[in-house]
């Protein structure tokens, strides 16, 4: 019956890439590629942490920014990835690269266990449940033997690729850079696809989305699980870089920092989230000179941003 409708040539495609984003993006990428050649160990270390936050914030952005679900326990999935990879390499002698799919599967299972019952409810409930989940994972890690208890897991093997072992901070810097680029590519691809649009429909008007044929529970669950998988991969690489992990790396504070990065830069939009993630990693280092006043200065800076740029530093035009 559609065929009877008058047809018209497909309209002009909207410009997918704007030069205002592409050019600074390319410049940032070029700078990121050569950074370790010029920077000292300290700067490279901080930059590696920044890249870790870029991956985590992009992952959480799928949950919070695209699907509009407030997740206060995102670090739990980061922990699931780190511990899965850590235990498998340190205790069972697995090859690091093989632990990644296992960690992804573990994150999926954890995502379903938490998400399936709670995503049927409105998002306020999800915030409370995820907050609890974050703490439960940390406390489990603290009390099990296999996770090394409170002192943590040590002796995690360094990954090897084509006979080359990742050892120095520069190596991990590049590994995280590849992961960050891969994550950004995945986010961009999904953002512009059918499922990506479904997340936005659910975020903007759940009832209208359901009325137009979108299964809101499935859509939310997929966003939640995709976020979980990205955090778990970041966790694997984090464990390999640190060679030792403890429950204290995965506290509620960690979840808040990741959320802060997403909100700070501009929720829902990749360039904004990357900027926010870098700021979250850099602020404590830049403000080192403030000494004991550091938390105060950070708080004032954040309040100022929220007052003057309530949609983030580089906001999503859609909001």
């Amino acid at each position: 019956m559609i065929d009877e409708v008058r047809t018209m040539p497909t309209a002009v495609q909207p410009q997918l890439m704007r030069w205002s984003v592409v050019l600074p993006g390319l410049a940032a990428l070029a700078a990121a590629l050569v950074l370790p050649q010029f920077a000292n160990g300290y700067v490279t270390e901080v930059a590696t942490t920044a890249l870790l936050y870029v991956v985590l914030c992009l992952g959480l952005n799928i949950v919070v920014g695209y699907a509009g679900l407030l997740d206060l326990g995102y670090a739990a999935f980061f922990a699931v990835g780190a511990y899965t990879s850590g235990i498998l390499t340190a205790e069972f002698g697995f090859n690091f690269w093989l632990t990644i799919p296992v960690a992804m599967a573990a994150a999926c299972v954890a995502g379903i266990i938490i998400g399936a019952p709670t995503l049927r409810l409105r998002s306020d409930y999800l915030a409370i449940v995820t907050l609890g989940f974050g703490e439960i994972v940390r406390i489990i890690a603290r009390n099990l033997d296999i996770t090394g208890g409170a002192s943590g897991l040590i002796g995690i093997e360094r990954p090897e690729i084509f006979g080359f072992r990742l050892m120095q901070v520069q190596h991990f810097y590049y590994a995280f850079l590849v992961l960050a680029l891969l994550t950004a590519f995945v986010c961009l691809s999904v953002e512009r696809s059918r499922m990506g649009r479904a997340w936005f429909y659910v975020r903007y008007d759940e009832d209208a989305a359901a009325g137009i044929g979108i299964n809101r529970v499935t859509a939310k669950l997929q966003a939640y699980m995709m976020g979980a998988v990205i955090a778990s991969v970041a966790g694997c690489l984090y464990a390999a870089k640190m060679t030792a992990i403890s429950p204290e790396s995965f506290t509620f504070n960690q979840s808040l920092l990741i959320l802060l990065g997403v909100v700070l830069g501009g929720i829902g939009r990749i360039p904004g989230v990357v900027l926010g993630a870098v700021l979250v990693a850099l602020l404590p280092e830049v403000l080192r000179g403030a000494g004991t006043y550091r938390p105060l200065v950070t708080a004032v800076a954040l309040l100022a941003i929220m007052l003057f740029r309530p949609n983030g530093l580089w906001p999503d035009k859609r909001v």
């Binding site: 429909y201 008007d205 009325g211 859609r318």
Partner: peptide, 19 residues
């Protein structure tokens, strides 16, 4: 009217094709 106000007109119409 319950449109996805912050999205484009085309994206709104595309939502119908989801199912």
């Amino acid at each position: 009217i319950r449109l996805f106000k912050e999205m484009t007109v085309l994206e709104n119409a595309m939502s119908g094709q989801h199912c």
